Simulated assay, not measured.
Amino acid sequence: MIKTSIRLTVLVFLLLGFFGHSQNKKNFSGIPNILQRIIPNDRIDSWVLVYNTYGKDQEIKISGGKTDYTPQFSGFDLFPDEDSFYYIAYESAGKTNYITDLEGLKKFVGKIDNAEEAAIALTVDGYMVDEEFKDVAGNYYEDSANYYLDIGKLTSKECPYQKTHYTVTVNKSSGAVSKVKENGTYIELYNKKCANNPRLLKIPKKEEPKDEPKKSTKRK
């Protein structure tokens, strides 16, 4: 009886811990909001986050006053999109600088200050917050030591187009990834060009039995 009660107690605590983590999960609130949570660690006088879509610039965030900058014709994106990109213009020591790629963005972020910055840092390794599938690839929870991010990655551009989701553990103190857990494929798309598209596989037709030639009967 005592052993049984101990086992039940342990099971209850495990379940409470599991449900506690599940309930504390938060969805990322979109790429623009993720980028607005950046807290640069280097000495920056002012900076502006610019979103360019179809050739038109829109200032998403201005920090530290006005920044004089030249519009850029290329930039970065946390989620693959052919028609838009972001860039950052910032002033430091009287000089204007630009962030137009993910490596530069990670350096600009510096020390990880929040879950959004952890997600930004992981984009360099191909991970992404998938706004279309937040339940599996766009949320996180945290404890005193780590951020636990459920995010996606494009794992195949060939046939079929495929995305896989992961749980990535990022240490709050060091910003280092301590664990990556693969959770499986959550989207798989075939198109007409895919030779391995199941919908295009031809089912071999069964040959219909040939009628045997009728024997002719001769009249006597």
Results as ranks from 00 to 15, higher is better:
2 I>C: 03
208 E>D: 13
20 G>E: 09
114 N>G: 00
143 D>P: 09
181 K>L: 15
205 K>G: 12
151 I>N: 01
3 K>P: 09
48 V>F: 02
155 T>L: 13
77 D>M: 00
147 Y>T: 00
202 K>C: 04
148 Y>K: 02
124 V>G: 01
54 Y>Q: 12
42 D>W: 03
217 T>M: 10
203 I>E: 15
140 Y>I: 01
167 T>F: 04
180 V>M: 11
48 V>C: 05
8 L>A: 15
168 V>A: 11
131 E>W: 14
174 S>N: 02
170 V>Y: 05
184 G>T: 05
68 D>L: 09
22 S>G: 02
219 R>F: 11
49 L>H: 04
186 Y>I: 09
104 G>I: 11
19 F>S: 08
67 T>I: 05
2 I>H: 12
205 K>Q: 15
12 V>H: 14
202 K>F: 14
21 H>R: 10
40 P>F: 12
25 K>G: 04
201 L>N: 12
60 I>P: 05
206 K>F: 14
19 F>A: 04
51 Y>N: 07
197 N>G: 07
118 A>C: 04
216 S>I: 07
179 K>T: 10
88 I>E: 00
52 N>L: 00
75 G>I: 04
113 D>R: 12
20 G>N: 08
176 A>Y: 11
8 L>R: 02
152 G>S: 14
31 I>A: 10
133 F>W: 12
78 L>P: 04
177 V>A: 09
12 V>T: 14
